[in-house]
């Protein structure tokens, strides 16, 4: 794992994507810092950081796009997969290298609240927690990017799809407002989600009985629940899908100084799920 981690980190800095990401993020944040904290005198660095979130959307796909698609295109994955290293370690090695790149600007950010403090009052606890959550949100974005990179051979496709998905997640609140709130639409939404999940299971396992069974049982259970207790479905879609507005955990801290621990647990579980899915995607390709 250490070998892959080191190689990946080195190649990220040799190929310019790493330095460009780090420099861009720090420069952008620096400009906001000058405007909000220095010139306007607002004492919260966390607010400045929330402005930098948009740089993540552009920058993180840059780091993640190459991770697996390039290996597959150059056939260097043959070397990794025939080496005495488990697939989980290969994925983790690569992921940790990306996380390290994301950590670099965040370490630099830790200096900014101290600058504010030297000029007067600073709210260090909120600022440092927000930097930590900002970093964690970056890790979540990176794991999504890594998963998409493992699906394709083309870096460009990996970049654009990752950027698209991160953008949708970023704008999620606005999209949710368009969703209907009646209970029948809740039921329809649940059935659509169920269909997507069972299609994915069928795609991964090729087992039509299993995936069809899940879809059928789920649909029957959903309809029965609707008949017995329709109020369960009211606002279900916005409540459930609202969790996908990942950045909310971060913006709660930056705008309201509220730390949502369940949100942080959600970040960590998303990371675990996508690392698992990446391993499964690569595993699946060996069998098809």
């Amino acid at each position: 794992m250490a070998a892959i981690y080191k190689r990946e980190l080195k190649s990220c800095f040799l190929s310019m994507t790493g330095p460009v990401f780090v420099a861009f993020l720090i420069a952008f944040t620096g400009i906001y810092f000058m405007a909000y904290n220095m010139t306007a005198g607002y004492p919260y660095f966390s607010y400045t950081l929330s402005g930098s979130l948009i740089v993540f959307l552009v920058g993180i796909p840059l780091i993640t796009m190459r991770s697996f698609s390039e290996e597959r295109k150059n056939k260097t994955d043959q070397m990794l997969l025939t080496a005495p290293v488990s697939l989980g370690k290969i994925v983790m090695g690569k992921y940790l290298a990306m996380v390290t790149v994301i950590a670099i600007p965040n370490v630099v950010f830790c200096v900014f609240p101290l600058i504010i403090k030297s000029q007067g009052t600073a709210y260090l606890a909120v600022d440092y927690i927000s930097i930590g959550v900002f970093f964690l949100l970056g890790c979540v974005y990176a794991v999504i990017g890594m998963f998409i990179s493992s699906l394709t051979e083309s870096q460009i496709i990996a970049y654009i799809s990752t950027f698209g998905i991160l953008l949708v997640l970023y704008l999620w609140d606005g999209i949710l407002a368009l969703l209907p709130s009646s209970s029948i639409s809740g039921l329809v939404g649940v059935i659509i989600l169920l269909a997507v999940v069972s299609f994915y299971i069928w795609h991964m396992t090729g087992n039509a009985v299993l995936s069809g069974g899940i879809a059928l049982v789920g649909a029957i259970a959903g309809i029965v629940t609707y008949i017995v207790k329709p109020e369960v479905y009211e606002n279900l879609l916005s409540r459930f899908l609202g969790k996908l507005a990942l950045a909310n955990v971060f913006t709660d801290i930056t705008s309201n100084s509220i730390v949502d621990m369940t949100g942080i647990a959600l970040y960590l579980s998303i990371i675990a799920v996508f690392v698992f899915l990446t391993v499964q995607t690569i595993q699946k390709r060996r069998w098809s």
Binding site: N74, D77, M79, L80, T82, A83
Partner: peptide
């Protein structure tokens, strides 16, 4: 097993020595 696939699995951005060091570490 040591394996040389049809297309050698080389990382173009590394020097020969770096590449072999990586391979050695990967092989444990």
């Amino acid at each position: 097993i040591g394996y040389l696939p049809e297309q050698p699995p080389l990382y173009m951005d590394m020097t020969v020595r770096e590449y072999l060091e990586f391979a050695a570490e990967l092989k444990g």
